[in-house]
């Protein structure tokens, strides 16, 4: 039995599945673009259980903001987040699946990394969606 036997040939529908995948990938890049917002103010925000723990305002050169933050997520859990010129990454964690450690490095506003078991999210927020900072001031 080799490739190409009955039932394994590439069919028209399969091609559509691939087209769908390509479109979806394109759409998510576009979604990121839209979310990125304008302006150059960028915030790295760490949220635990939906609550913002820390918001770090990034400078133009990310290397200046290099740091590692160890977040205690309760019940002995922790995630270590590294901010470097590469972007933001979870470099260590003691969650069961370690998916967050394998997550892609994020740098563009709109992107986020999650650690589902620890209910931790790290996200990058662009100017138009800065969360912890106020939207405006009444004076």
């Amino acid at each position: 039995m080799g490739i190409g036997i009955k039932g394994k040939k590439l069919k028209i529908g399969d091609v559509l599945v691939y087209i769908f995948i390509v479109l979806l990938t394109g759409l998510s890049f576009m979604g990121l673009k839209i979310m990125a917002g304008q302006g150059d103010e960028v915030l790295v925000q760490i949220e635990l259980n939906g609550r913002a723990l820390e918001s770090i305002k990034m400078r133009q050169n990310w290397a200046e903001d290099f740091r590692e933050i160890r977040v205690d997520t309760g019940q002995g859990g922790y995630n270590t987040i590294r901010i470097s010129s590469e972007g933001v990454d979870i470099v260590d964690a003691n969650c069961p699946d370690k998916l967050c450690v394998h997550s892609p490095t994020i740098k563009v506003p709109g992107q986020s990394i999650v650690c589902i078991p620890h209910k931790l999210m790290v996200r990058i927020i662009g100017n138009s969606q800065v969360d912890n900072a106020v939207d405006d001031t009444a004076s």
């Binding site: 979806l24 990938t25 998510s28 979604g31 979310m35 949220e47 939906g50 994020i106 709109g110």
Partner: peptide
Amino acid sequence: TAGAVFHNIGQLLTASWIFGSIGILYTYLP
């Protein structure tokens, strides 16, 4: 393959909803 794609979409939408950030979907999808 379609099943795998939608498995991921389902999970990501759930995560986006639970964490309140659609950014999760966009980040992980590609």
